[in-house]
Structure formats: C-alpha cells, structure tokens
Design a protein around this nucleic acid. Structure first.
Lengths: 332, 332
DNA sequence: TTGTAAGCGTTATCAC
DNA sequence: GTGATAACGCTTACAA
C-alpha cells in the first residue's frame, strides 16, 4: 500500500491491482479497444477498489468537462423552474452535469455567474438573462433563451408572435369584440415582445380595434388597478376580452376584476401566456398559450452540444398551443 | 507567442506578460502576501490577457473544488424548487458553485446522481432522497433534507411534529371538533411522518377524537374521493376540520369537497403543510404550516461546509409557523 | 520576499 | 495490443 486508505484510488492503484500498465487502465475507461482479458482484469480491480475517474484530472487534460452551466434568473418562478428542470434532465441524458447559477434578475450577477462558470471550464452555457451586453467568450458554446443576444449566439424561444396571434384569434372566435392587451415586463427587449406584435397583427387583420397597457415590473399592480377602475362604468367593463402577456399577470388581473364585480369568464374572457400549472398537477391557472417547455429544453441542449458550431440558427421559435383553463367560455 | 491565441491564457502566460515567475502569479491569486509592485504587475497582466484560474487544474492539485452538489427529486414542484433556489443562493454566497442533478424520485437515479457528482469531486452533497440505503462516501460531507439517513449524516427538516401540533391546535381553536388527518406520500419513512404524530398528540391532549387516511402517491386521488363521498350524509360532511400533510393535497381535497357541495371554510376548515405560494407572489394556496425554506437552506449549507465534521447534529428541526390562507375562518 | 521544481490524476504519443 | 513517458495548469515546499 503506497497510498493512504482514505484517499480515493487512482488509475495507478487500479493498474497495480490489476497488474497492468497505467495506460491500459486509461484505455479501458475511454472505451479504447484493449484485450478482453485485460479489460476484465481492470474492471474487476476498479470495482474492488471503488475507483472512479477523476473528472478534474480528465478535464485538465482534455479541456472537456462534460459540464454545462445554466445562468438563470430564479428557480422560484414556476416557468423558470420547469424549464430548468427540463434542461437539466436533457443534459443528464447526454451525460452532462449542470452547474446552476442564479442571478435574481440582476445584470451584474449575470456577469459574475458567467465569469464563475467560465472559470470552471464548462463546455457550454445556457442562459436566460436581462443584461443585453454581457461579456461572453466567443468560442464558448452559448445558447440564449427568449432573448436575441448577439451574432453567433442562437436563441431558443416559444413562437411568441404566433402565440399572440393565437390568443387574439381565440378571443375573437369566442365572441370578444372589445379587446385589451395587458403587459408587464422588465423593460428589457426580448423575444416575448412579439406576443404583443402577434396580438396586434391578428386584431388588425380582423379589423378589430384594441387597447393596450404596458407597465414595468417595478410599478407593481397599482397602475393596473387604476386602469381597470377607470374602465368600469355602471358595473360594466369596457372590454370583453383580455390577453395578458403572462399567466401571472392574467391571474392577478382576474382577481382584481372579480373584486370589482366583473366576472371571468362571464363578463370578460382572459388568456394568459406560459402555461403554468398548479403544483405539479395538470391544472392551469387560466386559459393560456402554452410554451413547449420540454421542446425548448431539448432544442437548447441540442444546439449547445452541436458539434458543428459554424452554421447555427440565430433564432428557433417553437410552436405554442392554446389550452382553455377556466378564464374563457370554451370547455375546460 | 508560444500559445495559440484561441487557447485560454495560463498562469505561465501571465507570468511572462508580467515578467515575474510562475509561483508569484499563483501567490497573487491565492492571496498569499507578495510585493505590492509585483501584485499590481500580475493583476494588470492577468486583466490584459483575460486570465482566469482554471479551477480544474486547481482542483486536481488541492482536492478542493468549491463545488457542491444538489441531488434533488425535481424542480417542478414549487417547494423543491424554492428550496433549491435558496440552497444554490446560499452556496453562491459562500463562493460555491452548485451542480444540480434531478432524480425524478427514482432510487436508482439517486444512486447514479451521487456517483456522478462524486466522480466530479464535489466538496459536498445536499440531497433529498427516497432511497433509504444509498451508497455514499463516508468522508464526503453529506447533508440530508427531510430524511434521517444514517449515522453521521445530519438531517435538516422543518419541525414537522410541532407543525402537526400547530395545525391541530389551530383547527381546534377555530372551533373544529370533528377532525380528520389526510396524508399522501411515497411510503418512504421520512421526517414528514412526524406531521401526523404531532397532530395526533395535540388531539389526544385535547381529548378530541380524529380519523385519518393515508394513501400512497401511486393510488392517485380516487380513494380520497371515495372516502369523502362516504362521509357525506344528507349534504353534511362528517368532519369540520381537516389537516392535510401537504398544500397540494389540501388544494385537491378542497376542490373535491366544493364539487360535492361542501364549502371551505364555511362547512369545513382546512390546513395544509409547506407554505407554497402562487407563482412568485405572496399568495398561499390554502391556510398552511409554512416551512422555513430560507432557514433550512442556510442551515443545510452551514452544516455542509462546517469545518469541524466530528460533532455534527443528527437532526435539526427548524421552526414552522401558521398562516391563514383562505381555507380557515380566521382573517387572511 | 521571489523563483524553481516536483507532483496532482489523466490522456496521448510513441516505441515495443 | 501494451507500456513507459511527457504534458495539461496549478499549488506548494524548498532553495535562492
């Protein structure tokens, strides 16, 4: 025993135990052809010693770590959490570990997280960020979610434009004629802005007028309250169909309308965006445009690990679908 | 230039650029005292070259990776997601990266995840598992959430017993006299079982009888439906107070009761457990016993990174609190 | 204080 | 096929 029993066994130990050379052991663990008898001896010895490859030593040598990083705003919000869950799952299936860092929507934290994981020699980064000009290594694979970043960085998003169109079309199909678009956001330009554009395009196409209101996250919900109160006359609401840019907003607005005596979906029908479900159940919070979380995760991972990084798409929009969830007058 | 411009700069490059020896550069990055003039030169050179320490090389040498692993059932469920969020946050504050692995409640996946991160030479593991006999390295710091694992592995949990007591006491205080305990679970013995024990203890203390029903996750909600239907006679429910072992269950049962014409909280008051909130808002799904997520995360991380691992507590129960959430007749 | 040199555990290149 | 041996980038005695 040249090695303290507490230390983890190394290839050297395995080689000694198996009575073969170090290189042979390495080959076995890299699936490089080796005499079957040797292979068995090595595997036996490794098992006996409880040996596992030290991926730090391997990473040092190969510059390949089988680790990806997720730079994420939060795991609190169900949409981010479920997308993170799916991405981690996809990466695991491809044999990748995932380092998760959380930015709390803070631009500086985003840069810090990227620096941190870069130092850790990750093989790639999937990020959902709010800082438009992050300093990111041009030859480190990078996939952005929901924001176009810069040339060469592919962006994966749901088809926000179609989602907006779909919402408008559904509301109109369900009989709404006085439409309202409500939006709440960070002020950072992202793919999600296209929800509005799609909605407007569909309204214009049908020659239906609509109003819209956009508020920054920081403003809270008070301005919405004021807006809603302003548009109720004699117990009647000015609108009969609302598209909210998130399920969260849809839920809050619904509560407020009910508090004002306006009933959903009897008086006004509402559609949200995201497709968030309660707990881990199937139940939606509202009728909504569902983002294809699993497909987005799969696409982001495929893009990240794509060997040929010379001709990546700039933007991939994945199809959304509508599902009733109680805030519209179609069956649930 | 001995080095391709695409490759990341190394300490050697920095040393050359700064005109100092390799060791000096290393010292600067390890906060080992060095002549101020040298320090500045090194830092300048490093900045100019965009140098960052290669943590794989460092880890190889020091056997310390500044990385911890989270072995987690899922990020889908809001409780797990918020706890994961908090733990990742605490670890980041201590300068640690977090590798997140997801088991989907699968025992074999749990073992695979542990093996995977062990190979990655993490400095410690925080796990929420369902496999009672995982093979885990005895000298790799390990903290278990919600399950007592084995000797030497500290467990962090909310004070489930007190939570159960508190729920019973609250229901009784609010006028309930015919109590019911409903439980759904994986069948794996964990700290959460103590919710029942606390509830029972409080009932006994007050000399109030109670019924209880326990179902495995796999059974779905049908048996609950049957039970509920069985206990409604002439539109009147046999119970006027229910403690459910999770918010999720509480929510589902409430829906079902309302569907049967039993109103919550008018006819029956209900308390759940977890303290899950809607989206990232403050709103609860039901009146509930709130788990101290942030404190649990902080405690788990402190325990994991504690230098003195010789005398760790076997179990730390953190205080819960009750908060009304609309399913009880106290003000919200 | 600064510089030198020996490894940490793997992989990869060679002769054999 | 197999088996020495030189890196990979860094830390850390130890010598200057």
């Amino acid at each position: 025993m040249t090695r303290k029993s507490t230390a983890a066994p190394t290839m050297k130990d395995v080689a000694a135990e198996a009575g073969v050379a170090l290189g042979t052991v390495s080959k076995v663990f890299n699936n490089i052809p080796v005499g079957e008898e040797y292979r068995v001896r090595v595997l036996d010895a490794a098992h006996k010693l409880g040996y596992r490859v030290n991926s730090y030593a391997r990473g040092l040598k190969t510059n390949k770590t089988n680790t990806a990083a997720l730079v994420w705003p939060t795991l609190w919000h169900p949409f981010f959490a479920s997308l993170a869950d799916a991405i981690v799952g996809c990466l695991m299936k491809r044999g990748y570990r995932t380092i998760v860092t959380i930015t709390n929507y803070d631009s500086q934290a985003e840069q810090r997280c990227i620096d941190l994981v870069r130092q850790n020699k990750v093989d790639g980064i999937i990020a959902l960020t709010y800082n438009p000009d992050l300093d990111v290594d041009p030859d480190l694979p990078f996939v952005s979610i929901d924001r176009h970043f810069k040339a060469g960085v592919p962006c994966v998003a749901s088809d926000n434009f179609s989602g907006g169109q779909l919402a408008a079309a559904k509301l109109i199909e369900l009989g709404c004629r006085r439409l309202l678009f409500l939006r709440r956001g960070s002020g950072v330009a992202g793919e999600a802005d296209k929800r509005r554009m799609g909605f407007e395009a569909a309204c214009r196409e049908k020659d239906l007028p609509f109003d819209s209101l956009y508020l920054l996250d920081e403003a809270g919900f008070d301005p919405f309250d004021a807006f809603l109160a302003e548009h109720i006359h004699g117990g009647v609401f000015d609108y009969d169909g609302i598209f909210c840019n998130t399920d969260r907003l849809c839920y809050e607005i619904q509560k407020r309308l009910e508090g004002l005596g306006i009933h959903v979906p009897a008086d006004v029908q509402m559609i949200g965006y995201d497709g968030i479900r309660k707990f881990d159940s199937d139940e939606l919070f509202c009728s909504t445009i569902i983002q294809p979380v699993d497909q987005m995760a799969q696409t982001a991972v495929d893009l990240l690990l794509d060997d040929d990084r010379s001709s990546l798409p700039a933007l991939i929009c994945l199809p959304v679908r509508y599902q009733p969830g109680g805030t519209t007058r179609d069956s649930v």
